[in-house]
Amino acid sequence: MIIANELGTSLRVTSGPAIQHAGDLAAVLSSLEEGEVLFIDEIHRLARPAEELLYVAMEDFRVDVVVGKGAGASAIPLSLPPFTVVGATTRAGLLPAPLRDRFGFTGHLDFYDPAELERVITRSARLLGAPLAHAAAHEIAGRSRGTPRIANRLLRRVRDWAQVRGDGTLDLAAARAALEVYEVDELGLDRLDRSVLRALCTRFGGGPVGLSTLAVTVGEEGETVETVAEPYLVREGLIGRTPRGRVATPAAWEHLGLVPPKPEGLLFDQG
């Protein structure tokens, strides 16, 4: 939206899962106006025929429309006006190298720091018409994992708690009470995150333990643990990945209020 606004043009929004055939992409491209911005969300999920069509469109501003079927089919080249393609994905490794290399610029969005999230939360509270104390905004921001989407979700849940069980004011007490109800702790860990940490520390002595074993222990699929819980736990330095499996760091034991086991192989206390 920022790019389209700076260019003074319009924005066309679509997504990779919505484009499963080359014809779907050809229909979108052929309807673009000159200078228009095409935004493709989850671009790594584009179908392979659509990817190959996008190659030609990005390089030559042309698409080939196939008319007819079988031996009588023919390809009609259709010229496209100059346009801008913006793709977004959270899994850049799944993008084919030929597609990734055709973009003139590749950027990476960092996580927000708490001060930036406070500004986001304060604005969202104003739009919701909910009176928000600065201390409550700071508390919510610190538990939002550096992500505005999570910050806005937690803000709405705090507002709900304040309206149902409080006086409607989003103060520090209301924020802490609401986040306790929704099981979001001081580091932003939720129930699944703490379950993974607790299983790793209490049942497996801090590891190492394999992903599938850990997932079965917490009653979740391995992919859920790997894609939902692990990234934030690793980023916060609570668990580590080793060739032998996942291990808990000293910070994990401290966060859970547990005492880590002494290293094996020591005959005497070195204290």
Rank of each mutant, 00 (worst) to 15 (best):
M1Q: 08
A4G: 12
L7S: 11
T9Q: 04
S10P: 02
L11G: 14
T14C: 05
I19V: 15
A22Y: 02
A27Y: 15
L29N: 07
L29W: 07
S30R: 15
E33A: 15
G35E: 00
G35R: 00
F39A: 11
F39K: 07
R45T: 15
L46Q: 05
R48K: 14
A50F: 00
L53G: 02
Y55M: 00
A57R: 00
R62C: 06
K69A: 14
G70M: 14
G70I: 12
A71D: 12
A71L: 10
S74W: 03
L78N: 03
L80F: 11
L80Y: 08
P82Y: 11
F83H: 01
V85Q: 03
V86H: 04
A88F: 07
A88G: 11
A88K: 07
T89Y: 13
T90N: 11
A92R: 02
F103D: 05
G104T: 05
G104K: 06
F105K: 13
D110G: 13
D113P: 07
A115W: 05
A115H: 09
E118H: 15
V120W: 03
S124W: 12
R126C: 11
G129D: 07
A136S: 07
H138V: 08
R143E: 02
R143L: 07
R145N: 11
G146K: 09
G146I: 13
R149Y: 09
A151N: 06
R153I: 15
R153G: 14
L154R: 01
L154H: 05
R156K: 11
R156A: 00
V158L: 12
V158I: 15
V158S: 06
W161H: 14
W161A: 09
W161P: 01
Q163P: 00
Q163I: 11
R165E: 11
D167A: 08
L170P: 01
D171E: 01
A173D: 05
A173K: 02
A174P: 07
A174L: 08
A175F: 12
A177H: 08
Y182E: 14
Y182V: 13
E183N: 10
V184R: 04
V184C: 03
L189F: 14
D190F: 13
D190P: 00
R194G: 03
V196A: 10
L197A: 02
R198A: 05
T202I: 03
G206D: 06
V209K: 05
V209E: 04
L211V: 02
S212R: 13
T213V: 13
A215H: 03
T217K: 00
V218P: 05
E220G: 01
G222C: 03
G222Y: 02
T224K: 14
V225R: 04
E226V: 10
T227V: 07
V228F: 07
V228M: 06
L233S: 02
V234D: 08
G237C: 08
L238V: 09
L238C: 05
L238H: 04
I239N: 01
R241Y: 04
R241K: 14
R241W: 11
G245F: 06
V247K: 03
P250S: 14
A251W: 02
A251R: 10
A252F: 07
A252C: 12
W253R: 09
H255W: 14
L256N: 02
P261L: 00
K262H: 09
P263R: 04
E264R: 12
L266P: 00
L266T: 06
Q270M: 08
G271N: 10
